[in-house]
Write a protein that binds this DNA or RNA. Structure first.
Lengths: 135, 135
DNA sequence: CTGTATCCTCTAAGATACTG
DNA sequence: CAGTATCTTAGAGGATACAG
């Protein structure tokens, strides 16, 4: 059995892609770039909150997305879920120590963004204007 | 004209979502979480590289994705593109100062990931095992 | 109140083929 | 060598209805 150059390239790409999935930094990026993750974590920074309170504070998130975000945070060991079996039910969410430590990284991102996204904004404007006039 | 509670909620969500798009931190996350952005930037950390060299170093990226990643980095003012009109054509890519500064944030992410993704990995395993046995 | 189950849409990412 | 143009697909995100 022999392979064409094309097949070899495909194989290399597939292998590289698999390796990427295992890269810790890649996984972290995928975890925190999901739309509501950082917002939820920021809200929980000052202490535990009920599900309904989170919903009130992050009105953009649908109920489904909020729950699924919280589930993935819980699964990743970044948030703990406390269920109180009263009627009606009550659930509180709280950051774990690991979650708090991740919050540090998120603040780093936020800081850079606040300081530099203006420049990025400008660059985008310039780039777009150049294409517009040039075609 | 009056509105139902449902319509009001919808409006609030839409408005909140629009605000989110404008949030610098959100934009930053969207910019760097695109699949090949960080890899390209890391490769360019030590100096300029040709298109073909980048392609060789990041075999997982298709030609299309590499070009489109480089375009968006250029648009954001993070990378400069130097075109040399020889035959065949030659293009070199290099980080801008802004790009280098962003690299610092990326290293922060990477560091946290290297130190802590093991714990996340463990938490995931525990969570999944618990569901498996409990159902 | 909290959470699940469906269905739907939109787009990032990829495969492929072509041009200067 | 570098880049563009199409077509396809998988999955994130969302709307809605229902359940414990």
């Amino acid at each position: 059995m022999t392979f064409t150059a094309h097949q070899k390239r495909q194989a290399a790409q597939a292998q590289y892609a698999d390796g990427l999935e295992l890269c810790p930094a890649r996984q972290l990026l995928e975890a925190i770039s999901s739309k509501w993750v950082t917002l939820v974590m920021l809200e929980l920074a000052d202490g535990e909150l009920r599900h309904s309170e989170l919903r009130r504070r992050i009105p953009g998130a649908s109920q489904k997305m909020l729950t699924s975000t919280l589930r993935s945070l819980e699964r990743d060991g970044l948030v703990t879920r406390l269920l109180t079996l009263s009627v009606p039910v009550r659930t509180d969410y709280e950051l774990t120590p690991l979650g708090h430590s991740l919050l540090g990284v998120i603040h780093g991102l936020k800081e850079w963004a606040d300081e530099n996204m203006g420049q990025v904004e400008e660059a985008r404007g310039g780039y777009d204007r150049a294409r517009e006039s040039a075609g």
